[in-house]
Design a protein around this nucleic acid. Sequence first.
RNA 1: GUGCCUAUGGUGUAGAGGCAACACAGCAGGUUGUGGUCCUGUUAUCUCGGGUUCGAUUCCCGAUAGGCACCCCA
Length: 429
Amino acid sequence: MGKKLSNQEPKGTADWLPEEFLVRKYIFDTWRRVCLRYGFEEYLTPLVESADIYRAKSGEDIGGKELVTFSDLGGRELSIRPEMTPSVTRMVTKVYASSPKPLKYFSIANFMRNEKPQRGRNREFWQLNCDIFGSNALSADTEILQLALDIMIEFDAPVDSFVLSINNRKLIDAVLDLCGANALASDKKTAVVRTLDKWDKLNAAAISERLGEAGLDKKAQLVITQFMNSRSLEELTASLPGINENIGFKELALATQALENLGYGEFIAFNPAVIRGFDYYDGLVFEVFDKNPENNRAMFGGGRYNGLAEIFGEKNFPAVGFAPGDETTRLFLESWKLTDKVKQSAPDKYYLPLLDASLVLETNRLAKELRGQGKNVLVGLEAQKINKALEYANKKDISRVVILGGDEISLGKYKIKDMKKGGEAEFSL
RNA sequence: GUGCCUAUGGUGUAGAGGCAACACAGCAGGUUGUGGUCCUGUUAUCUCGGGUUCGAUUCCCGAUAGGCACCCCA
């Protein structure tokens, strides 16, 4: 024997033992069911991509130091995907021109980011990605929001358990224009945007200091403060008259109205602090927040990214989408105790123990027949006394045990015992 | 990248500068065809390396690993 190897998973990754697998399968099945219900089609792209497609527009961290990169035999620099959007955009550019529009696509896939793992965040994680390509209509934005809400509702999320916060990059841009931030050097402008992103975590003095350092005077800061303190579109109009002429504002108002008309009003709210770090968003942006005080966090988000296709040298096409992750979803389900359905989703199983070593053939014949009827049959591999067989079934939470021993065979019968109710039923062999 | 916390059977936890304890799970049996209870047996180089000490699993330093928060992201 050589050196003893660690049986731990690599940092930031996790094994999925059957129990945990069942939870994630429940999450994936729910995602898939709702997407199919909206007529979305499932696709998949390769695990690795050329590293460059992430450096272009994925942001400094995800497209930089968090990228897991290696060289192939030809010296090409490849990365394990840290997100789906560049991949699906790349894929769609190949078929876009010849495809009937719009395209409604989804995928469930795993990703890698070289981060420091912590609660709700691993290096390897799984995401659902839903996107609509080829429609600039506001109804595409609305459908994406509705789909995101329906996924939450399909998980039995109570009304006050989460909120979908919406904002619009065009509106943010207009506000940056109003206060002169768009005229600033790009690093100063980034500092302003970053401050907006941190708004709720910083106090007034810290905000003022940061904005001042970025080059905004008191008057400009007041404009930003009025924008950021608006809790609704009405409040925003009152504090910044004329802002309601902005296209981003109008889109938000119309999308909100559309969702209210469909009965989703109580789930959505305008929130000026929703910015999102990806550089490619250029219209609607949104995030879903868990409202549980023990898990108060953004769960997932999305938005419109009409400009991304240009990195592949293609004519741009409209795109809007979102991506919830497996861990954040799991934490949400746990924080609201919504995991009852997980066990119900486990497949029903039969246990057919081998009660005597001489009955291997008969036992497997019966198992084959029951499997032919579509039943899931777990067959005993080693001879086992019946009390041990029942004990095993209990421990494995198996609800039915098929009994086939010498007595049954001589009568030409077998029995199925219901472990919950205790009764037995007889059947002919 | 920064800071804080933790490391003892398979799992969850006690413990004390001098023979490492308990619970659960696992396996075997009590019990030759009817279960969940009960009883018995069985399971540990106390993460690694160095230091202090007659003696360290315990105290100190370092490494490694894990967790949490920040950053960032979602």
